[in-house]
Amino acid sequence: MSSTDAFDFNQMETRPATAGDYVQLMKPRIMMLVVFTALAGLVAAQSVSDVAINPVMAAIATLAVALGSGAAGAINMWYDADIDAVMKRTSTRPIPSGAVPRDEALAMGLIMSGVSVLLMWLASNALAAGLLALSIAYYGWFYTMLLKRRTPQNIVVGGAAGAFPPVIGWAAVTGSAPLDAWLLFAIIFFWTPPHFWALSLLAHKEYAKAKVPMLPVTHGAAATRNQIFAYTIFLAPLGVLPALTGLGGLVYAIVSAALGAAFLMLAWRVWKSDAGDAGAEPESLKRAKVMFGFSIFYLFALFAALIVEHGFGAYLAIPGVA
């Protein structure tokens, strides 16, 4: 147990909650990424498998993914309210700022979980609904309650929670989860550590204060920079792999190869820097910040390329690829 347990939510000042507070509780920025990657899986599945889903059902399935993501976010904020109150970056969140009571956040998360899974089942099939339920439990329980405060590998293992959406989108259309869907899963899974560790190099003091065992806190900044570079070396070619299975066409191949090379270069710049060390150069911190920002763009661009190819008829087959 951490010293943050001493935080007394009954003694804190409260303020009336706005609609915006409840939106914040659902972690809207993560939700955007989740919805976008689920949509890419859904669009690609329709094009690749020639199975059409009713557009209204597709919209409801996408909404279910968004609600599921929001539900997991609310459960995460309920459980992590004590450490959120300690860290400056998260102290303005709805629970530590006194806008939303903790119990209310938990109730909202649980009800939304049920609603999202039910809607997914009604709009698509049991597999997609089951995967959605699994991903909510994975993030809300396995990552938040078991991993996050116990191991520096928390975001490596926990990264799977954010990797499910394209598989869910794919399953919503076809009722199955083939290799191509799991390839998209793998891209997000291996993208998460370099993305998150770049941020943790900037905020490791905050994590240390909250006693969250992030890699820079437990193993130091140098080990974190090594891990960031190692994961990026693996991620860059993995990102191109859909072009070799035929899931991605020419547009995807060019985008993934160019952005993968850029990601690798930025990771190398961070690896060579002293980002995260005590008394690190401002330039080093800037490198970590740039890499963090670019990692978000990288993932958006890869999945946008898939949507453009499969949803807007821009798919150009690569000669020699099935």
């Binding site: 009336p16 909650a17 609609a19 409840y22 009713n54 209204v56 059902m57 409801i60 809607l119 009604l122």
Partner: peptide
């Protein structure tokens, strides 16, 4: 102020419930 916030919350809850019923209805119809 608190009463106003409570009323606003209740309205959002009612809208959310209505939206849920509507979505279940539309999926059933399709």
């Amino acid at each position: 102020q608190a009463r106003k916030a409570q009323k606003r919350r209740n309205l959002w809850l009612a809208l959310a419930l209505f939206a849920f019923v509507f979505l279940v209805g539309i999926t059933t119809a399709i």
